[in-house]
Each structure stands twice: as C-alpha cells, then as structure tokens.
Design a protein around this nucleic acid. Structure first.
Lengths: 225, 225
DNA sequence: AATCACGGTATGGTATACAATATACCGATA
DNA sequence: TATCGGTATATTGTATACCATACCGTGATT
C-alpha cells in the first residue's frame, strides 16, 4: 500500500505570517506605517500571541522593522539599500545560473523549459499574472537546479524582499513580462549548453536590468512626498 | 551641550535570544535535542512569550528547527548541507573581498590592518581566544569595507551559522589560528593593492580551506553515534 | 523659546487557562 | 508474538487579562 501523506496542519501563527506577508507585498500598508498589534489582531482575526510571532518572522525577512518598545513598521527603503540589494541578488542569481549550468540536471532542465513554454503560451493569451508567476518560478527552478540548498534558501528570501521594493516604488506597474521572458530564454540556453560563465553573466545582467526601473519608481514615490 | 545618546534598552526577548544563541553556539545542547519551552523558561528565567519569540528568530537563523506541534530542536547537519553552505559562504566572502578591493576605503583598510596586528600580538602572547575573536572580526571588517550593507547582513548570518557547524562537529578544537591569520594577511594585501580578482580568489579559497576539517569532525561525531 | 511635568496610548512581559496533538504505555485481539 | 487501538500524559498552540514601562504630544512654567 502506498504510504499515507502526512498532512501538514497549519498553525494560526503560520497563517497569520502568510496573511501579513501578502498584505505587505501587495502594498496594503504604506512605507513607514506602524503596524499596531491590536489592529492586526482584528484584521487577521487571531490573538496577539501568533501576531507577535509572525511579526518576528517578518522582521527576519526584513519586511518589517522592529523598534524597541515602539513596535513594528514597514521599512522606507533608500536608493542605496536597493542598489546594494540588487548587487547582492545579482551575484547570487549569477552563482545559481553558473552552478545550474555545471550540474546540468536533465529533469530540472525539462522543468525549466516547460515553465518557459507555459509562460510563452500565457503571454500569447495575455494572461499577465500567469506570466509574472511563471517568471518568478523560473528563478526558483534555476536555483533548485544549482543543487545548492543554502543558495536556494537565501535566494528565496531575497526574492521575497524584492517584491517589497517593487510594491513600495510602484515599479511593478511598468514591468514588461515579455522582455523578461525573452531574457529568461537566453539564460536557459546558456545553462542548457553548460556555458557557466555565460549563464552567470546573463543572469547577473538580467537582475541589474530591472534596477533602474525600481530606482525611478522610488524617486517618483518620494517626489509625491 | 552634546546630544544625549539615545539609550538602547534591551527587551527581554532580545536578551533571551542572545542567551539561547550563545548556549547553542557553545554546544550546550546536543544535535537533535528538543528544546522544551518549559525548561527554557527556567533556564533563562523569563516567561514563555519571549522564549517563543526568541525561538522564532533562532529558527530564521537556522540555529533551531521548528516542527509543527512538536516544538524546536537543534539541527543535525548533513555533509551535503555543510558543503552547500561553505560553497555559498565562499562565494559571498569572495564578493566582499572583491568589492572591498574595489572601494579601497582608507579608513576601513587601517581598521583591518590594526585588527590583524592586534591579532598577531595576541598570537605571540598565546592568547588564543583573542586571536579567534579578531580573526572573526577580520571577516566582519572586510564585509563592511565592501560598502554593501545587504552583503554584510547576509554574511553576518552565515558566519553565525558556521559556528553551529563547528561546535556540532567539534572541529573548533583543531583550528590553527596562526595559519588563519597568515591567510588573512594575504587577503588583506590583495585588497590593499586593489587586486579584485586576487582578493576574491584568495578569500574563496580561504573559506573552502576549513571545509575538510568540519567534514572530518562531522564524521568523527557520527562515528561516536 | 526652551524645559519640564503629566497623562494617554501602545508595546513589552507575565501569568494563567484551555484546546489540540504527539507520544508512550498498556492491554486486547488475532 | 505482533499488531491494533485506546487512554493517559506531556507539550505545544492560542487566547486573554493584567500590569509595568517607554514614548509622545501637550501645555504650563520659567
């Protein structure tokens, strides 16, 4: 008999964490806004205990900032922070692409290719949210193809935080999923033909490509006070 | 009149976090051991709430592992995890060294040199703990000299976790602070003369140098069941 | 104008109660 | 004997009440 899958039961803390994270990443809160525990308990519908634990986790994700005896607030990113962040992510996505090219796991390659093709189909049908989701998945799959779990974990964290920068700077509105998809295809090609250096270089450039957009968005937001 | 320094008051949660972290990193708990909340409240002398918040933070540091409705336990590292981890850290320390060489901040360089000289003096006086502390500080200073705060943060986290691997594998006992210091001097020389590629390469090799020691320690621990 | 005192508000922390669940133990049954 | 099932116990997960304390705005006082 097949083994029974152990059912993972979500704790309220985990639900609260994901709920708050999604609220933050969709721009529900404004940059700099204080998150009052008691408001959050009403918003999420749970008690203070799981809210506080969820906030501690979000603090580690750098999606909120803890200030002693003041509470938690949404960060207000600076241009330098964003530049530093993109530089770091660029290096690590480059490493992931290079390692993936080195490994060349056939199964993973097929998965990535399928994600790209599905994204292309979604693009043709103008299902933009689908395309964006699959574009994110591309990076996930490449990280997994690197075979390095630590790298995968760190990149996952960075990718979560990059969404914060995007939403706080409204730059998500100006993305061009088609161009992104095109670059992903180039990176995949380099990985598939085991060109480590080329894969790294393309992946790094790909990340840095979106930096100006985010910085411009940040300026626009700040100009509006 | 000089401005009053805003006094940073530690919350109990933060104290509990540091206390637990230090206990973990000094090997007070065994790999795989469950951390019972009730025991921890007695051990640290605070109530469950701050203990649980501290554990959530430690979970993000990957110094403990949370299992739903089971609690938290000390991780049992595998050889692959350790290899992946060192590979990642090697890449990032290399990046930090390269960026530091690029920046060439004179003030930072002086700080690093001073740390190296102090470490040398401590070594001559056989103050081994001093030397180890200053050797860690070297990496911190190089990361700061890179000018990239995000990189600095991530490397800090990685450096914390590497201590867990060391203590869980007892490999700390076999370290040779003198050899480490010698390698640090070489890395510093490369940074000081703005040799980005050489600084990166030396820093990466330096990290990977200690990997076999940790892996050997892991095997030795596992052989003892 | 600068400083100080005061009070409101929110967090930080404790204690407690209870629900939910994992585990160990134990006995019944095949 | 081995397996199944049930029960007791321990522990985490969650809610809640309560208090102490820090922060901040406000207004009086100098």
């Amino acid at each position: 008999m097949a083994e029974f899958q152990k059912i993972k039961i979500d704790t309220v803390t985990e639900v609260a964490y994901r709920h708050l994270r999604d609220l933050i990443l969709t721009g529900y809160f404004l940059p700099g806004q204080w998150l009052r525990e008691r408001e959050l308990t009403e918003l999420i519908g749970v008690s203070r205990t799981p809210i506080r634990e969820a906030l501690r986790t979000l603090e580690q994700d750098q999606l909120v900032i803890a200030e002693s005896r003041r509470g938690f607030r949404i960060p207000v990113p600076t241009a330098k922070e964003i530049r530093d962040f993109y530089e770091l992510r660029s290096e690590l996505e480059g490493m992931a692409a290079a390692k993936a090219a080195q490994q060349g796991d056939a199964g993973r390659m097929a998965e990535i290719l399928q994600a790209l093709d599905t994204a292309q189909a979604s693009l043709d049908h103008e299902e933009i949210l689908q395309v964006i989701g699959l574009n994110n998945r591309f990076h996930d799959l490449v990280a997994m193809a690197s075979g390095n779990q630590s790298l995968c974990d760190v990149l996952g964290k960075l990718r979560t935080k990059v969404n914060l920068f995007r939403v706080l700077s409204w730059s998500g509105r100006r993305e061009r999923p088609g161009e992104t998809l095109r670059q992903h295809r180039l990176i995949f090609a380099a990985i598939a033909e085991h060109s480590e250096r080329r894969a790294r270089s393309l992946a790094m450039d790909h990340i840095l490509d979106s930096l100006p957009l985010v910085l411009a968005g940040l300026n626009a937001v700040q100009a509006n006070h």
